[in-house]
Design a protein around this nucleic acid. Structure first.
Lengths: 134, 134
DNA sequence: CGGGATCCTGCAAGATACTG
DNA sequence: CAGTATCTTGCAGGATCCCG
């Protein structure tokens, strides 16, 4: 147990005492974003460099245009990504990570680092669990 | 931009060069967990202390029994939580955070800390965005 | 090129009722 | 107390076609 985790636990203990309402917890917004299938990938891809719509789509081959558009709108709405239109012909639109979006990259990186370090252990545990269930 | 974020970006650049498949990315498992509505709350509540089923339910008032059971099963399957049955009458079952689950608490805490520091800015940006859309 | 509009499907998650 | 079983609904996300 480290300092940040201990602090989190202390905060939760207070929320709990106040009969907190998970539905209105503002932290949900952020966790929901992280849970969205494409949001994190878009943030990371834009962390590498600013990109145009179809550049992004090539960087993340499996995303559909629809979901990419929707993901970008959501991220823009939350101020994590900015959209810059250049009135060329045909039009070109560049997406950039905002300072806020860039700052999110750090905690995200730590979470993903944890996932990379531990996903093998998770998959083994899972195999054992599923085997025992049979 | 800090070290862990820079490292993440470097890794992504390599994935991208290898034409990576998001559907098979093992990191998804973890991000999906974080996105699940109750999983993080359960992990934090168990970080405070080990608890029994109905203790957990009281700590997180809005969760239904069904979702709590399902969430606990998933976390147990991934080895983040362990389940201990005491054959008393009536039966009592205690859930504990495993070492793996405890280690997840740290990156999670940083993400939630970020969310707490920035949710106000996000909500303001969102209000402006929605206002402009009208 | 950078989308928008529509239709469709599957799954997360809630409501309710029952049980060892 | 600690669940299971069943039904239902909302929404994420995919497929397809259209547009300036």
């Amino acid at each position: 147990m480290n300092a940040s985790a201990a602090s989190l636990i202390a905060r939760f203990t207070k929320w709990e005492a106040l009969d907190f309402d998970a539905g209105r917890c503002p932290v949900r917004d952020v966790l929901d974003r992280v849970g969205e299938k494409w949001a994190t990938l878009v943030l990371i891809a834009l962390g590498v460099r600013s990109r145009r719509f179809n550049e992004l789509k090539r960087a993340i081959p499996d995303v559909s245009k629809r979901m990419l558009t929707q993901t970008l709108r959501t991220l823009e709405r939350d101020g994590l990504v900015t959209r810059h239109v250049f009135p060329t012909k045909p039009p070109s639109v560049e997406y950039r990570l905002s300072p806020l979006g860039t700052s999110l990259l750090q905690p995200l990186a730590e979470l993903i680092g944890w996932a990379e370090r531990n996903h093998e252990a998770i998959q083994q545990t899972r195999a054992v669990f599923d085997g025992a269930a049979t």
